[in-house]
């Protein structure tokens, strides 16, 4: 949990790692943080018992709950998916706040930049950058990946010159911070 003072009191920001025990510990050690006007901010998906615990701690400390700011992840609108049925040629840049689906080839010198996934129902020879705003769950799927470079979130991978089994589609994803490519089944 992140704790910071704001103009009207305290801002408590709950993170994915927070548990009921974490909140109990804070309330035992330093319940002053709950004893003012408190705003709660959800930085991730937070389960209800944790929020309930926090509210009860604020009550115990005679604090006042001002507001609960919802999770940005949960409320962020899904970007629109771009679907293009043509060859994406050198020099073209396709950008999407969601996913990109290309029904055709993506040639060398073309760029696909998506906040979510990229699907190429053809051969991918250009640059694909999935999860461009830090979505580490984003993937790149293609009938054949021949790009010299792939990017997912903040990771960059260079082709090693080896070519996988070309009869099978491939999917690239982040695995422990590194980009991995495997045959898609």
């Amino acid at each position: 949990m992140k704790i910071k003072g704001i103009r009207n009191g305290m801002m408590l920001s709950l993170e994915a790692a927070d548990t009921v025990e974490v909140i109990e510990n804070i309330s035992e050690i330093n319940d002053e943080v709950f004893a003012s006007k408190v705003s709660i901010e959800l930085l991730d998906k937070i389960s209800w018992p944790i929020i309930e615990k926090l509210i009860s701690c604020i009550k115990e400390a005679n604090g006042e709950l001002v507001e609960i700011k919802p999770s940005k992840i949960a409320t962020k609108p899904r970007g629109e998916t771009i679907v293009l049925e043509r060859t994406i040629r050198s020099g073209a840049i396709i950008e999407s706040t969601g996913s990109i689906i290309i029904l055709g080839d993506v040639n060398s010198g073309a760029e696909l930049i998506a906040e979510d996934d990229i699907f190429v129902i053809g051969t991918l020879r250009g640059l694909a950058h999935a999860g461009v705003n830090g979505n580490t769950k984003a993937t790149v799927w293609s009938k054949q990946i021949l790009s010299p470079q792939l990017r997912i979130a903040d990771a960059v991978a260079q082709a090693d010159g080896s070519q996988g089994d070309t009869s099978q589609a491939e999917i690239a994803f982040l695995h422990e911070g590194q980009i991995a490519i495997k045959a898609w089944k």
Binding site: R89, S90, G91, A92, N107, S108, G109
Partner: peptide
């Protein structure tokens, strides 16, 4: 040759 093919690809895109 690869560089010629890539430039041709760009030109085809512009023609389209």
């Amino acid at each position: 040759e690869i560089s010629s093919v890539r430039d041709a690809d760009r030109i085809i895109g512009l023609l389209e």
